[in-house]
Design a protein around this nucleic acid. Structure first.
Lengths: 167, 167
DNA sequence: TCTTTCTTTCAGTAATAACTGAAATAATAG
DNA sequence: CTATTATTTCAGTTATTACTGAAAGAAAGA
């Protein structure tokens, strides 16, 4: 468990996720049962306030849920354990927080470039290329993410054989 | 161009890529012609040494190439402009540097857990679930990344219609 | 060989992000 | 209403990462 949680934290920081946030998520995933903030503090050895912040961050990503327990006023938190759901939730979050603003920027950049006769044509084209590429990827993601879990699994198993479809 | 380069740098830092590295890459991509380190210094207003380090980093990712010019001993650098190639190169790099070590860790964690009778069964199972999931995704990526550019484009256009194949 | 030009290395500094502990706030029980 | 327990906020500190400028190193021309 220790190895898993520590590596997950390390992995988080390489992808722009706070180490503590990733560790808390890893721990909740492994635990498989609702934990209180204090249990997390004890296990990970980080400050209570840090755990509180990390839990809020994970809640905002919809990666964990609050899980009230009858007769206990402490907050319990539980992580999703279906890995497809976890993956799609993370991708959805990053799309919303990072890809969508990037699309906005690219559209502005295209406008900027169009209204400026100093900008060479090939640079305008390359900005548009990126815009089109990101738009295509996003559209593809939106379609595929709406497929059922079982369809996704079957498609994964097909691997390169999907290319049969385009022949 | 400024908007594009600055946003790309910002985007980089959200994904664990050094801001300067991302900016240099964005600039070389947009320029579409080979640039010297000094041209980059002048345009981005960062230290010569910083540019040098960033260029080496981009070279190690195979995102830029050195481009010698006859009769000029300075190094010129050029970025790949085919966006599919750029995307697949980045994914390949991250797989090698991050996913492969994660797979190693997961296999070790599985062994650790198997050899420890204190670890509950459901935690062992969740570690294995992650291992299997990442292995499946990796195998899928390896197959799909070897498909031709045109096949990939066609598959993208199909979107959710690929699900027809699994019916 | 000696200069000149270009590139890299690296120690020190600056900037950023993460984390802590104390205090404030909120919620519930008695 | 008051005491108790739980949670959040935030100013200050620590840790990490990024960046700079000077110096060393490398390559080519005179």
């Amino acid at each position: 468990m220790e190895r898993f949680v520590l590596h997950w934290g390390e992995m988080g920081s390489r992808w722009g996720v706070n180490r503590s946030v990733a560790q808390v998520h890893a721990l909740l995933y492994l635990a498989g049962r609702p934990l209180t903030a204090d249990e997390i503090v004890e296990t990970l050895g980080i400050a209570r306030s840090n755990v509180s912040t990390s839990l809020r961050e994970l809640l905002s990503w919809d990666l964990i849920v609050q899980h009230p327990l009858l007769g206990d006023r402490r907050d319990y938190f539980r992580a999703e354990t279906d890995l497809w759901t976890v993956l799609l939730t993370i991708v959805e979050g990053r799309k919303r927080r990072e890809i969508d603003p990037t699309l906005t920027m690219l559209r502005l950049a295209k406008l900027d470039a169009a209204g400026d006769e100093e900008t060479p044509e090939d640079i305008k084209r390359r900005i548009e290329d990126v815009l089109n590429f990101v738009e295509k990827l996003t559209a593809w993601y939106e379609q595929v993410s709406s497929l059922s879990r079982s369809t996704l699994i079957k498609l994964m198993k097909l691997g390169a054989k999907v290319s049969a479809l385009v022949k």
